[in-house]
Every structure is written in structure tokens, then in C-alpha cells.
Design a protein around this nucleic acid. Structure first.
Lengths: 204, 204
DNA sequence: ATATGTGAAGGTTTTCACAGCA
DNA sequence: TGCTGTGAAAACCTTCACATAT
């Protein structure tokens, strides 16, 4: 089996949200060009992306939204009850926690960690903050596979190592540093300053 | 002139930070394999990326850090005094503002906007919050080209239109919606829930 | 000897274009 | 008709490999 490109996965995540909104609005069927109008991708791109999902539409009525959604969910592995955690409850960490709490996504943040004793034991936006030293046991007990890393840059490498030791499989890293960890751990870097500089470059 | 790929620009931004740290540590010269070790990219990739910058190293001593930095700065357009603004001072907006204030990046956030009268007129992390209705004049006066969009999802489209009208050239969008605006405006989407789902997918 | 710059090869992703279907 | 699924082409990006420089 040949692996699906990152870009395709990103778009499938997007299509899932768009199609889900259409379903919530009472729509039952959808054509690729309708998803295209809302997502910005071309109809051909969408059809190509959906090839990997294992559900086919029909030329007559397009895609049955219920079945399409189920296909994307299964493909993305969102049916299994995976969980995420967040490490570092500074203002960015707490903002992300609040954002997830409001939006109520499929993938829940099941635990938070911080080294500050003033924060541990407290519930932030519905999520309990554990001491960082409990990482391994909490991550194992709650079956957490993914971590959001929002600690200050000086602590990021050390926290990442702790997470890997605790059995995490992927890290969403907001610290402006390239983490040096095992290559089988998936890392997505989301430094905000880098993002603004990128936008600035392409804004001319 | 053929345009540089997005991926290359992202890496150049990263190299700039890495090399700058080396300079701050007193280093004067650097080889591609040294940048490679810290950035995760291959030496060949780095040399290829640097081709577009217009500064050449030498096989004898690699790259002179001072000159390399200047080349990257010029290439990225960071020498001109561009500015950014942030729209929406909820907890995420304020967290990003605080993060920029601490890290003190080259590209500064020169203004903030919010519709809440309780926030306008107040300085957050060194940046004054203006009423959203003043967008056009403030953006023109302060020569702001880029906006960070951190408003709730329901307001994102409308705020984006206001920004475009105010003359912005690029938007870093944290709201989980695809903005429908002029195609000559560069948009980078950074929805956090999408990011976590992506990491979850690739974590197996 | 060791590192750079780059043409060429290799790999990946997007777009095109059309057969086939309801 | 107007859509889907998909080979084939095109565009894009990365890696290889080597001439060149010191």
C-alpha cells in the first residue's frame, strides 16, 4: 500500500469539516465542485484525494454525505478513541486548551502537564493539570498518542524527550526549535514567528 | 526570475534563525553540514536552497556567517521595515501578542484591533488596541502589510474582508474556515485542531 | 582532502482529459 | 447531459553525483 501524501491528509481533514457542516445544514448529497467552492481546492484535486479513502460517489448524485463522512473518519483513524495532551500551560497553552474546549473537536485533550506546582491539581477549561513528572503514567493510563508542546523554547527539547520516553507517537511543536528525537516520532512544527515571516515574504 | 518554492522559503526562515544563533554564540563561519545537523535538512538541500539567495560560500571555509545572514535577510525582505497587526484579542490573540513581545522578532506587531470597547485604547504587551473601525487608517499610517487573524470563526470572513479593504497583502489565519477573498492576497491557514488531527494521523 | 554550486536524475504531487456511467 | 474515477502528462521538489575551488 502506497502512503497518502501529507497534503492530501491535510485536505481530507478540511473536507471532513466542510462536509460535516453541510450535513448539519440538512444536506444529504454533495458534488466535488461544491466542496471545491468552499475549500479552495479544485474538483479534480478533491476526487483524487478521495481515491485513497475507499468510498466512491456516483456520477448521478455525487457523494452520499453520510457514507463519505464515515469513509473519511475511518481513513483518518478518528473512530478509534485516541487522545491528546498539552505540555506547558503558559498563556499560549491555556489559550489552545480553551479553544479546544469551545470547539469540542473529535480528538480531545485528555490531560495537561506543567512543572509549576501552582498549576498542578487545577482544572483549566475542563482539563486537569498534572505535574510533569507524572507524564509517563498519565499518558499510558489515558491512552494518549499525541502531544501539543507549548513550553518555553529552552525547555522544549527536554520536554520532548520526556514525552517520547512516556510513549508519545507524535508532537505538535509550537516552540521555535527543531526537536532532536527518534525519527519514528512524527513532529509538526508550528512556530508563529516563522509563519508570519512566511506570509510577509509571499505578500508581494 | 523564477519563483522560489514555499518549502524553500520556510527553510530559509529557519536557517536564518539557526545561523543567527551561531553568530550570537561567536561563530564566524559555517558549513552546510553544520546547518544540516541543527535543521534536519540535508546538506544538499541547504546548498540548493541557498542558491536563490545570491550569496556563495567557498569550499575552503563554507559560508561567512555575517554575509550569509545579510543575504538571507535581503532575500526574505526583512530589511524593509514591514509591520504586522493582529485582529482579535481573545486569549489566543493576547497569547500570540505576548509571545511576539518576548521573542522580539524582526517583524513587529505594530497594532492590534478588537471590536470590544472594553479592550480598545488599552496597551497589551506593548501594543495598543484600536477599534476595528480604525483598521483602514491605522494600517495605512503604520505601513502594515500582514495581519494575524485570531477572531472567532463566525467573524473571520468579515474581518478578512475589512483587512483586504484596508490594504493588507497577506493573512495568517487561525480561524477554522477557508477565507473567500481576492486571490492576490496570500493566506496561510493555521487551524490548531486541523494540526492536531494531522499529527494524530501520521502518528502510527 | 573536503566543501561548494549545479546539471541531471529521481521522486512526489497536481492538473489534464477522457472513458464510462446513471 | 454532467458527473465520477483514473491513466497520463505536467509541474514541482529533493537527492545524487561530480566538476570546481582552495
Amino acid at each position: 500500500m502506497n502512503k497518502t501524501p501529507q497534503k492530501t491528509v491535510e485536505r481530507l481533514i478540511q473536507y471532513r469539516r466542510i462536509v460535516q457542516q453541510m450535513r448539519d445544514a440538512g444536506q444529504e448529497k454533495v458534488f466535488s465542485h461544491q466542496i471545491a467552492r468552499v475549500s479552495g481546492a479544485s474538483p479534480a484535486q478533491i476526487r483524487r484525494d478521495l481515491m485513497g479513502v475507499g468510498y466512491s460517489g456516483s456520477p448521478a448524485h455525487g457523494y452520499i454525505i453520510h457514507d463519505l463522512l464515515q469513509g473519511i473518519y475511518e481513513f483518518l483513524g478518528l473512530t478509534e478513541k485516541k487522545g491528546a495532551c498539552i505540555v506547558g500551560l503558559g498563556s499560549l497553552g491555556r489559550a489552545i486548551l480553551g479553544y479546544f474546549h469551545e470547539q469540542n473537536p473529535v480528538l480531545k485533550i485528555k490531560a495537561a502537564f506543567d512543572t509549576d506546582p501552582a498549576k498542578t491539581g487545577i482544572v483549566f477549561h475542563g482539563t486537569l493539570c498534572h505535574p510533569a513528572s507524572d507524564m509517563a503514567s498519565v499518558i499510558r493510563d489515558k491512552e494518549i498518542t499525541v502531544a501539543i508542546l507549548t513550553v518555553p523554547v529552552e525547555q522544549a527539547q527536554q520536554a520532548a524527550q520526556q514525552l517520547v520516553y512516556a510513549g508519545i507517537r507524535g508532537i505538535l511543536n509550537y516552540a521555535p526549535v527543531v526537536l532532536d528525537i527518534r525519527p519514528d516520532i512524527f513532529v509538526e512544527n508550528r512556530d508563529m514567528i516563522q509563519a508570519v515571516e512566511k506570509v510577509a515574504y509571499f505578500s508581494k
